[in-house]
């Protein structure tokens, strides 16, 4: 819980309490408007909706370059390829600008070979991305790197086109995991 969020909830509670003391809510004939917090002592009050402050940030990560969340890897490799560096930079900038937002990186592997070794390989991929984001300014405690190994394939055919889709990191933001 952050301070801003906490204040909004306190404010909201005050308004509801104020409304309750009028006793209007008890009256069966009261209109919908009478139940709202618009009028207190006859003064106009600008209505606000108490939302998670992550909301605005989360809207941002659903569009533009930040909507892209996957980094793909070569077989048996956990090196982040140059083609994904601008994407990683964009996400790093976002994490720096929104220090309260957290990210979960899920590393994945294709299905070939041992499940546990693939889990470890997915972890290496997730850690590689976490490291790059950290070097670009994101805080260590903002990011958790985990692995799903070969357990959550995006594509389930036994060919390279499919496997290359499954060798990847997915970046999830607060509220998405």
């Amino acid at each position: 819980m952050n301070i801003r969020n906490g204040l909004m909830i306190v404010l909201g509670a005050t308004l509801i309490a104020g409304c309750g003391t009028t006793g209007e809510a008890e009256q069966p004939g009261a209109s919908v408007e009478d139940r709202s917090a618009r009028k207190i002592d006859g003064a106009e009050v600008k209505p606000v909706t108490a939302v998670d402050p992550m909301g605005a940030a989360l809207a941002a990560v659903k569009q533009g370059v930040l909507a892209k969340r996957s980094v793909f890897f070569d077989y048996d490799s956990y090196v982040i390829k140059d083609e994904f560096k601008s994407l990683v930079e964009a996400h790093a900038q976002f994490l720096v600008a929104n220090p309260k937002v957290k990210m979960l990186i899920q590393g994945n592997a294709d299905e070939r070979g041992s499940r546990e070794y693939n889990l470890a390989l997915g972890q290496k991929r997730a850690e590689a991305l976490k490291k790059m984001l950290s070097l670009l300014g994101a805080r260590e405690d903002q990011i958790e790197a985990v692995s799903l190994g070969e357990e959550k394939p995006r594509c389930s055919e036994g060919n390279e086109a499919c496997w290359s889709q499954n060798r990847r990191d997915d970046m999830l933001y607060t509220g998405e995991f």
Binding site: L104, Q106, S147, L148, E151
Partner: peptide
Amino acid sequence: AYVSFESKKP
């Protein structure tokens, strides 16, 4: 003993 991903991670 086993590994479960029910909390979105192993």
